[in-house]
Design a protein around this nucleic acid. Structure first.
Length: 213
DNA sequence: ATGGCGTACCGTGTTACCTCA
DNA sequence: AGTGAGGTAACACGGTACGCC
């Protein structure tokens, strides 16, 4: 049985066709046919009817065979593309996951530093208030003494602060502002954090180190 | 203008066959 | 020689687009 130069009975007719099972005249395309089809698929994944007829004639195939080959090729290409995309997504996910992990660790370290500093500030505030009330009790006057009155911080004061906080912790003061729940990330939270006067930057008339004496 | 019909094509899933380890 | 897995041509089916009447 010859069809456009192709013998479709090859290999297939050795076995009788069963009544229930439809026998397919399946024959593998030649390397040359596949090569030509692949080249065409690279330039266009769909064939126009005219082009399909032309290709079929050129390769000695039925137009239907060419159409089916392109359909199957598109399906195979899509499947492989999905696999490639999946691999890329997996790699991206892995990279992001490791970055997230290191960021979480970094955050935890910062939170611990922040809590430590908050404890120090609370203790210092309590200590300052105790001294203040003690002085008022003795003199019967509000406390006026500060380094402002003397014209600045003494070397003695600076040394005492360093001794208390340590140089590194003092340098990191600005960055230690985020609690575990992230509740200080909004402007409102910043105001509330500042409202106890610990971080009053201007117009307060005194600073936290005023309580050192 | 609209709806019915036939045709061609597509995507998706399945089947049947071939090849190879 | 027999067999199972993987590849693939061919098919089935449902959906869509288009032209014609």
């Amino acid at each position: 049985m010859m069809l456009d130069g192709v013998d479709y009975t090859l290999e297939m007719m050795a076995e009788p066709i069963s009544a229930t099972k439809k026998k397919k005249n399946k024959r593998k395309f030649t390397d040359e046919q596949i090569k030509s089809l692949e080249m065409m698929f690279e330039s266009e994944t769909r064939l126009e009817p005219g082009k399909k007829m032309e290709v079929a004639k050129e390769l000695g195939l039925h137009p239907r065979q060419v159409a089916i080959w392109f359909q199957n090729k598109r399906a195979r290409w899509k499947s492989k593309q999905l696999q490639r995309d999946y691999t890329i997504l997996q790699q991206n996910h892995s990279t992001l996951a490791s970055k997230l992990e290191s960021l979480i660790k970094e955050k935890q370290a910062l939170v611990i530093q922040l809590q430590k500093l908050n404890d120090l500030l609370t203790k210092q505030k309590e200590k300052g208030e105790a001294i203040k009330s003690d002085s008022e009790g003795k003199l019967g006057l509000p406390m006026e003494k500060s380094e402002h009155a003397h014209g600045g911080i003494s070397d003695d004061d600076s040394a005492r602060k360093m001794e208390y906080f340590g140089v590194e912790e003092e340098l990191n003061l600005i960055s230690m502002v985020e609690p575990t729940d992230g509740s200080l990330t909004s402007p409102e939270d910043w105001r509330s954090f500042d409202s106890d006067g610990l971080f009053c930057q201007s117009g307060c008339g005194y600073h936290w180190w005023d309580y050192w004496s």
